[in-house]
Design a protein around this nucleic acid. Sequence first.
DNA 1: AGAACCATACTACCATACAAGACGACAGTC
DNA 2: GACTGTCGTCTTGTATGGTAGTATGGTTCT
Lengths: 225, 225
Amino acid sequence: MDAITSPPSGSAAQRIEAELRRAIISMAHPPGSRLSEQDIAATYGVSRQPVREALIGLARTRLVEILPQRGTVVVKISTRKMMEGRFVREAIETAVARRAAESFDPAARVRIDDLLDLQQKVAQRNDHTAFQRYDELFHIALAEGAGCAMAWQAVSDIKAHMDRACHLTLTNAETMLELVEQHRAIMAAVDACNPAAAAEAMHCHLREILRALPKVEAEHPDLFE
Amino acid sequence: MDAITSPPSGSAAQRIEAELRRAIISMAHPPGSRLSEQDIAATYGVSRQPVREALIGLARTRLVEILPQRGTVVVKISTRKMMEGRFVREAIETAVARRAAESFDPAARVRIDDLLDLQQKVAQRNDHTAFQRYDELFHIALAEGAGCAMAWQAVSDIKAHMDRACHLTLTNAETMLELVEQHRAIMAAVDACNPAAAAEAMHCHLREILRALPKVEAEHPDLFE
DNA sequence: AGAACCATACTACCATACAAGACGACAGTC
DNA sequence: GACTGTCGTCTTGTATGGTAGTATGGTTCT
């Protein structure tokens, strides 16, 4: 049942990177805020070295920017880059959906129904964090079921940025329930073995996600670059 | 003219990571070989710390695998993973080619012709390394010209793995010249503003690259997993 | 002879200390 | 008053020592 709380994996550096990643995506560290190696090290009770490695990892996913000898800051949200990211994600995930409709692992299929039910529950509770976690699990399961788990690797970084923005756009339960319905629509096309419909459903799904972005940019201009 | 030799950028860690990356892709460190932090540190005349950060970076791109408290090894080539990677890369790059045919930055357009001429030259000289570098520059320029530079970010890691395999498959000048011709075919479709043709040309191009992979796996089974 | 056991040499990992660059405040000068 | 040079304090970057875990080879017991 605790598939949602990822365990404190392996090294301290990995653990801290995961923690910081969550904190950044959930806006606990808002865009533009500074991240001091020393402060974080003190917070987590470790040395600067693992913190440094964690920040390097986050910099690689473009969630933070390390300015040499100056400091590390959480990158601001860029609508333009977000749209570019959507383009790439759309290219990958529509291809995955198409392949899923051609052949899908039956074992993964039943798991997805469970995921969607759980996602619907947390959506009704208006629980952002759990919702996004199940959203991620859905897309992972879809890629794995289609036999291209590696595709997720390429998408995960982009999705992290999107999820951060969605913490501003996903304000009510209705919107989240809509997204769950879109997930079900994708699976319906997959079950019908209709590649074109699956790709189209995924296309609409990804289009919907960032629809409200320009509005929140006007509301929170300080979070954007 | 020295656009091919990337400068020793910023920190020692980044410099060493770039060096190791080149060495791995060019098979100077063959798949399966061990990479000791200490040895590399001594080789490059630096401490173990920047080497460690470099190895962590390479592990993130799946070029090496860090086994905690045991050692770091160059990952072996996996035909299955390579095919999965091609699937993802195909999804992204055909979308890029399609968009390029819809609208392309004129300034980037002229640069590409220069790149292709240079690539043809080094192909005639049978210079693997330079060829792959210009190949990379071509795909980057195409993405930038199409206005989705971020797409390259998602492709670069996959291409690194492919390039490593291609060091085994690209043995003669003829094959390289064929690939240049495929590049020109893509650009012809772009110039003709024919998205479908551009995507199809890219599709064929990426299909060709790994065609000889099963053969080299039979010849060098020790390099594969 | 075979197998369990232990010492040793290796590894990645973390903590600490030091170095070098960047920014801001302040004093001195024109 | 505006400009400039210098010093102090922040930051990240690098070096080094020490720790825990793993594999390996020799040894001892059965």
